[in-house]
């Protein structure tokens, strides 16, 4: 899973993957997996892109969050969670890492319940 080879063309807004079949997304986004471009049916990730994420829905999700811990220490601790992955969790997605084979660089994606996914940082772009 982690070493899945991804060749990103035109830096896709949405990447869709379902099991071993990887698919392209919208007109602005094409993904080629192992040299094959695959068309796809509308997916959760595609719907998300089409509809966008409303700020109001995020606010209501946030208000239901568990309270964060309180540290006894007064030193400045850092945590720096990836905001895009936190947003992914907010919209009920599952953050996942994909690793580029050559460079070993990781790309964060947000997987939806139907297996489709969107590059996590692209979630920020579709907030309305």
């Amino acid at each position: 899973m982690m070493t899945r080879v991804l060749v990103l063309l035109l830096f896709p807004l949405v990447l869709l993957v379902n099991g071993s079949a990887n698919a392209s997304a919208n007109a602005n986004a094409i993904i080629t997996y192992k040299g094959v471009q695959i068309s796809h049916a509308p997916s959760e990730a595609q719907k998300l892109v089409d509809q966008g994420i409303s700020k109001a829905s995020l606010a209501s999700n946030n208000s239901n969050k568990m309270k964060t811990k309180k540290a006894s220490s007064t030193r400045l601790h850092m945590s720096g969670e990836n905001p895009a992955d936190l947003l992914c969790v907010e919209i009920k997605g599952i953050p996942e890492n994909i690793k580029e084979e050559k460079s070993g660089d990781e790309i964060s994606i947000c997987r939806m319940s139907d297996g489709s996914f969107i590059v996590s940082w692209d979630l920020i772009k579709i907030i309305k």
Partner: peptide, 18 residues
């Protein structure tokens, strides 16, 4: 991104991190 992901958490985080 920060605003979207952490709207409600910011104040608590500040307290948490000292």
């Amino acid at each position: 991104g920060l605003a979207a992901a952490e709207k409600a958490e910011k104040a608590e985080k500040a307290e948490e991190s000292g």
